[in-house]
Design a protein around this nucleic acid. Structure first.
Lengths: 255, 255
DNA sequence: CCGCAAAACTAACCTACGGCAATCTCATTC
DNA sequence: GAATGAGATTGCCGTAGGTTAGTTTTGCGG
């Protein structure tokens, strides 16, 4: 069953690289077939990028946004003294820099942490789509506000949780976000990060992340080894982290 | 000169409580007279709230958003052990919880730190306005993305700056944000916060904030006393904080 | 002008995490 | 299968900031 939009665009209706984005959005609101086709049609076929490549430089003028199709991306900021802070991790299905649609440039860089596939979307195509489907505009606005909610959760972690709870909280967050897009099962998920990457997310040093990982392992809560997170005691982990998924807005509602 | 929208609504064209919001938005993009009238017309006359009142509870269903007309608001989260973390401060002219337009509830509470005046805006009125003026929709989307950029700056502070630089950075941020809405002169600004409030922003204790304020005073960079921030050496302060206003997106551009 | 509470300030001590350096593990390449 | 290098791991010690427990100052209602 093809919609009008789908017939005009040879990619629409197909474009499987938008699948995880749709899973993510449909967790929060209904999207009808016409909207789906419109959304799929504006996302260009994904391009591959190697790990550890800065794909968007801080300040660079932007006329398109990046839909992460596969891999892990980080929003990061480098300090004078060589330290780095990551302000958000992005998983498949995330629009990593939809913020640039209104900001026109970013206040931070975006970096691949693993090999990635990215489908670009032109800002002009977004404007056209929003004129026809204001509801999709609100949904993507929602998704940037969801990023802001994640930022706030990280702020709370960095400000008020100790290193153990902070790491536990991050692992809980990723568990939920990856489950939504079908990349985690209830016992854990693949996570191709180094301990140093985790340190850059958590405002710690890699040495201390190592100590904390050992503690979490010894307390039989989680194991992170060989690029895989195995959650041994989910309830215990959430409790330690004071984690609640409320800030991820998983309920389906008209937005 | 009255526009069509202004003639329909007795408050439009007047509604001076939207002045600072307009100053803030016009710093980033042009707004024509018709848009201005539409925006003014949907903001209800401000209501007064005393200091230290939670005006929005975490999770509460929301059908309107708060434009801060006067005073200081905080987005906050309380921890099990009684600690509090503030994830953003809002000054006059800020839409404090425009995020709830798409989120429908908040992942945090909103609290008055000083006596405040707030003009409420119904979400239905926003939808109607956006249908007629998509450009205003993008501008307000921009303003939620600006909040996200501020969140990221705080994340970097909390993760990678020591207490002195962290406090200095916050004081720099407020200087710029208050200047935009005409509430700071180049030498400083009124700031009716306690040292404990600052501690809750910075992930510190009030005791340590006190020590750090003394250090900043002794280094002749800033003084915070009697609810007023006096900047003695702006360049030195920015340098210490590694502060750049880039993340506040002060340039005027079509959004 | 007094009495009171909240906030500011100080000092002595304590601890979570950083800094540094050495060693270990493991995957990759020739 | 030896050589290499990135990342993981551990131990020791230093320090930024927390904790506790005060004292002092400020603002304010009566």
């Amino acid at each position: 069953m093809m919609t009008a939009a789908a017939e005009r665009d040879p990619f629409a209706g197909a474009a499987p690289w938008a699948d995880r984005l749709l899973m993510k959005l449909r967790q929060r609101d209904d999207i009808d077939a016409e909207e789906e086709a419109a959304l799929r049609s504006i996302i260009e076929p994904p391009q591959a990028y190697p790990a550890r490549r800065v794909i968007i430089e801080e300040g660079e003028p932007l006329e398109r946004s990046a839909l992460l199709v596969e891999g892990l991306l980080a929003r990061f900021k480098d300090m004078r003294d060589g330290q780095q802070q990551i302000s958000e991790l992005h998983v498949a299905g995330d629009f990593a820099d939809l913020h640039s649609f209104t900001l026109k440039r970013l206040d931070h860089g975006i970096l691949t942490l693993t090999p990635c596939r990215i489908g670009w979307v032109g800002h002009d195509a977004l404007i056209a789509m929003f004129e026809r489907f204001p509801h999709l505009g609100r949904l993507l606005w929602f998704s940037t506000n969801l990023d802001a909610a994640i930022h706030r959760a990280w702020t709370v972690s960095l400000g008020r949780r100790d290193a153990v709870a902070r790491l536990a909280h991050l692992l809980c967050e990723l568990q939920v976000r990856l489950e939504i897009v079908g990349l985690a099962d209830p016992t854990g998920y693949p996570l191709a990060l180094t301990q140093n990457d985790l340190a850059n997310c958590l405002g710690l040093t890699s040495v201390h992340v190592n100590r904390v990982l050992r503690e979490l392992r010894e307390r039989e809560l989680v194991t992170f080894r060989g690029g895989h997170v195995t959650i041994a005691d989910r309830a215990g982990l959430c409790d330690l982290a004071e984690f609640s998924a409320d800030y991820l807005f998983l309920e389906k509602r008209p937005r």
